[in-house]
Design a protein around this nucleic acid. Sequence first.
DNA 1: TGATATTCTTGACTTTTATCAAGCCATTGA
DNA 2: TCAATGGCTTGATAAAAGTCAAGAATATCA
Lengths: 232, 232
Amino acid sequence: MRQEDLQQMRTLRLFDGMAESYVESMLRASFLQRFPARVELAREGEPADFLHLIIDGQVEVYASHHRRETTVSILGPGQSFILAAVLLDRVYLKSARALSPSRILMIPAEAVRQYFERDVHFARSLGIELAIAYRDIVKELKNQKLRSSLERLANWLLARNTETGASGRFALPFDKKVLAARLGMAPEVLSRSFAALAAYAVSVDGSSVHLQDIDALRKVAHPSAFIDDPAT
Amino acid sequence: MRQEDLQQMRTLRLFDGMAESYVESMLRASFLQRFPARVELAREGEPADFLHLIIDGQVEVYASHHRRETTVSILGPGQSFILAAVLLDRVYLKSARALSPSRILMIPAEAVRQYFERDVHFARSLGIELAIAYRDIVKELKNQKLRSSLERLANWLLARNTETGASGRFALPFDKKVLAARLGMAPEVLSRSFAALAAYAVSVDGSSVHLQDIDALRKVAHPSAFIDDPAT
DNA sequence: TGATATTCTTGACTTTTATCAAGCCATTGA
DNA sequence: TCAATGGCTTGATAAAAGTCAAGAATATCA
């Protein structure tokens, strides 16, 4: 591993407060792996071998069942995935694939469990991390069950706008196909939803989005802190 | 608190391995509260005051948004709720109401956070607990997004049958209205789904269910360990 | 017990979402 | 430059689920 990569990884939130020698020894046991786009990083049903930590790139987490597939989340640098399976030594409930060329820090599951037992700070970090992940997925369940697809899109646009500086203009960070999956609808439905939002001054050209009337959009979206606010 | 209640609570999984004096002091700070049916135990949006632990009774956890409501889970004795909000000192994302007269052990959020910092074993217990809760809700999200309402009902029946001893006969543990909410469908849809399952030898009379051809039912249900198996 | 309320079922209908098919458009690469 | 590929859009249609209304069954309680 390169020196600067190591330096970056030591500062990961997960390692906060952890004894330095432990962090070092955990990192020594880990691999920084490079993956091309489209590669499968984890497969539903397989035993949890590694905790995955995204250093670089975009990863889609999804699940399949009976010829259907659904995207659970799309993650970026600094985020980890399948922590729960690793901690409990169970099989993955979700699969993951790289959306873009990615660099992933792979920490052996065995090491994660070991240091969970050995280091109080690490145990607490994992607890906090899991609590956050839990709340995120509760929000996602509410988003799915309490909203129509049009509302989900409208809220996603508002959230994305806020994330990117609230300028009213931003680019879609991935293909519309992927966005559709992320929002839990067929690509055709996404197309139609975008068309419907034109009435609320949402204009889309390729991957550039322009929200020209945030207030109008908010009226369709009915945003709620208890679903949409990442800080809540 | 009565002596036998105290005894029962000391053995809760959450307290496993925790220093006895800590358990005692945590219990001393807590209340064992009795609630009649229908009472609201926690309300979405309010700051997390207590970790709730069900000693007795049935609790429905649900969320509301914009005139819609959805049930997230129905819990029984030994289960806790809204742990994540307590640990992170955030507001509740879900509400909870008693479905039956219930006794709830209410542990002050402050105490939970304190002992999370103070006692390693408790911190680990919470981590494990959160990991399990996380996986449960991932399964629920998959159940919702990857299945039709008929499939959800069929799988719920199979799971309930297994839970109750696989005799093929069992009683619904709550009103059909509540079951419908639990499965994410309107009561009318549940009625029709039951009617549709008659073709697969499922007979329902009031709250008694009789599964006369498990294999046939499994063919409609397509059960999956990664959604339905509580042990996976 | 009878009165009342609630839950449950069924029918008719609407809305939402998915599916299939065709065509367009942009990107890529020989 | 052109062909090909994959992504995106649009139309037509189907399937799934929700809503409204009415009546039947069941539970609750004075």
